[in-house]
Simulated assay, not measured.
Amino acid sequence: MADPKKKEQNIIKNLSDHHSTVMETLRRRPVPSSSIQSRGKNDGQRKISQRKTSNLVEHHYNFDSQRNLLPGLPKQDQDLARDIHDFFNLIILVPIIALNVLNWNWDKLFKKPISKFGIPFVDSWTGLYFNEFFLTCMAYFVIDLLWVVIIPRSVKSPMVIIKHHVATILYLQIPYFVPSTRFLFGVLMSVEINTWCLIARRVFNKQGFPPWTINLPFLSMVSIRIKLISICFYITWISIRCLLYPYVLLVFYKMATAKGGNYLNEKERMALAIGVCLHAVFCYLNACWTIDLIYQKIRQWKSKEKIISSGL
């Protein structure tokens, strides 16, 4: 009797090879003459359609030579440095997320999220494990920063990661020295849930299978896993990066104006001002990545419509 595990590996290999062939065919697909003519009529649209995608979108999605979004994820070749770094992140982010969860009173958070001063989340933050949470986060960002500096090939955009981690390490000093802002530390670090999903989405789908069209009758758990991670990724991206992060800017404002402006002392106000500037940068990056992703998705849908209408 054939070994089930070996059979499973063969199925994955065959599917992966087939997927690679399809992707290569799509990349080499000739552009219809009608499309070329329509492009020539509108140079402005052509320039927009060929604009460079952001690093985050480019590294986690498939594109053809015309920078059109393709189904599935980029196929991951063997890369020990990248794989070790990815698994480090997947492991270390778990206790960070868990410690964040332990620092909240979830009954209050769901029943009465707004304090008497009109500030969201503050009364729900217990901070019982703040020191452990803070030290774990600092250790993670410092180690990861040094890792990328020493082994830059472990990530695709080392300078982006380095800048992000330096800004984050500076940002983390605010809740440490200004206790009244520690609840925001917990709120903002919830983004690591999305970071975990982003990395897991790549690590657990190295073959680059399209998560929404994959159909593996003999490997249903693989299909479920890929779909589940993708669903969690998009849910946390929208809820945290697109909604919660901009909302925190409003929380900053509420803190500054609460109690007639006497809620914070001078030191806290200065820290809050620095925090607003840094947080605005993170919101800007999230907005850029989101807009770029939506733009590419729209282009992909339009491309499909053109192919169907032309009979291709």
Rank of each mutant, 00 (worst) to 15 (best):
E305G: 14
L172D: 03
V57W: 05
K302D: 15
G311R: 02
I84K: 05
I291Y: 06
L80Q: 07
V166W: 10
R51S: 11
R153D: 12
S239R: 01
L243Q: 07
F134P: 04
Y284M: 10
L184D: 04
A139M: 05
K227E: 01
R29S: 15
V22P: 08
V57R: 04
M23Q: 12
N14P: 01
L219N: 01
I36H: 15
W212G: 13
S310W: 06
E268C: 05
V160C: 13
W196G: 10
L250N: 10
H19R: 09
K206T: 04
T168P: 02
W301N: 15
Y171K: 03
I298M: 15
G311H: 10
N105Q: 00
K112G: 01
G118M: 01
L102A: 11
T290G: 04
C277E: 08
K108R: 08
N62H: 05
V222W: 03
I11E: 12
S180K: 04
T181I: 10
V101G: 06
R28F: 13
D43M: 10
L135F: 04
W237E: 06
S34K: 15
V178W: 02
I308K: 13
P217K: 11
V251F: 08
I226G: 02
V166Q: 04
L312K: 08
M23E: 11
S20V: 03
L56H: 07
Q207T: 04
G127N: 09
T136A: 14
A280T: 03
L243W: 11
N205K: 02
V94P: 02
S239W: 00
L188V: 10
D144G: 00
M1I: 13
F233M: 02
A200L: 09
V178F: 08
K108F: 01
A81N: 08
W106I: 02
L70I: 10
S190Y: 09
S35D: 15
C277V: 07
V101Y: 11
R201I: 04
K156N: 11
T236E: 05
F63A: 14
V22L: 15
L244Q: 14
G40I: 06
L135C: 06
I193L: 15
H59Y: 06
Y234D: 04
K267Y: 15
Q296F: 11
K227A: 09
L128S: 12
